[in-house]
Nucleic acid binder design. Sequence first.
DNA 1: CCGTATATGAACCGATCGGTGCAGTATGGC
DNA 2: GCCATACTGCACCGATCGGTTCATATACGG
Lengths: 186, 186
Amino acid sequence: MRPSKRDEVVHKALEIFYRDGFHATGMDQLAAETGISKTTMFKHFRTKEELILAVLRLRDQVFRNWLFRRMAQAGPPRAQLIAMFDALAEWFATPSFRSCMFIKAASEYPDPHHPIHAQAAEHKRLLFLQLREIAAAAGAGDPDARARALLLLKEGAIVTAHLGHEPDPAGDAKSVALKLIEDLPA
Amino acid sequence: MRPSKRDEVVHKALEIFYRDGFHATGMDQLAAETGISKTTMFKHFRTKEELILAVLRLRDQVFRNWLFRRMAQAGPPRAQLIAMFDALAEWFATPSFRSCMFIKAASEYPDPHHPIHAQAAEHKRLLFLQLREIAAAAGAGDPDARARALLLLKEGAIVTAHLGHEPDPAGDAKSVALKLIEDLPA
DNA sequence: CCGTATATGAACCGATCGGTGCAGTATGGC
DNA sequence: GCCATACTGCACCGATCGGTTCATATACGG
């Protein structure tokens, strides 16, 4: 019961920030929409920035957990790599999909030295490390380069799904990915 | 002389919005930093949103002009496609590089029905159309799919250059692109 | 039963938000 | 010399910004 309110704030703030943006969402709106008083929020987080950082930590944990768990179900490492794009396709089909929270955070806090930007960058780094491990397990001689290439496709697909008119960016990315790792042992 | 002040506003606002973001930049700050009075700005643009739309129109024109002019210098169509990634590398190396203005706009105005989001999407569509033409000229049987794949790489490289720790996302994207169009006649 | 911790609503703070009103100045064509 | 146009500074508007204060209410553990 002790950590419940704090967690509730973070979870609900995540939804609202994701839907409306960081700067566009005021603390008053947040209080009104979550039903949690502003006083309580500022007791758990000294500033809005601290709340945003907590939101990004939660999002990082939830997203990577979801993605790699989803990929692990695909079986052998090479199939896991491909499965990433099937997972993306499902995500894009969600009605509430509005691009990647970390791309948005970096867009709203463009200065690379800003703590929020830096934390968003950290998420991408962790993604890369996990993906590289799978690429190595798949028998790639250059797991670094493979992981970098696959992540390029992932980020491109996300941006295109949010901003473009293409019907299936995840499928397009998957096609390219297949070509990139067709030499790996199944 | 007549259109000079209006253009000056748009050009200077472009720099500032690109550097600091849309919501984070107030009209007062804009007036202070450009040396152009707020009264004048609101005489040329009825709202901040109108100014942002004008900024995006300018950015679209300047960016596509720069990119495709730069690509055209590379010679035959297939080389032009590859040259896109060399152009990106140059752009990323610019000290003022802070991702793509349209990705940022879509991030700050996540609702696809918002005029600003829609205009950002239009930029991506125009990019696609021009790139598809080059792919067709290069002899690709499926210019649509080629253009989509190359644009995925481009968007991914931009995001990674802004948000990631990778030393050369444009080079990584170029390597993948080479594989994607190696079958085309030089 | 008391003390502490947690959460509440509501009023309030100075600053800034997008946007307006007004009076005054500089410039150029006639 | 005159009038229109363009631009200016500056004060002002109501609303909202992030953040604080305070008095109160509820709940739990000793």
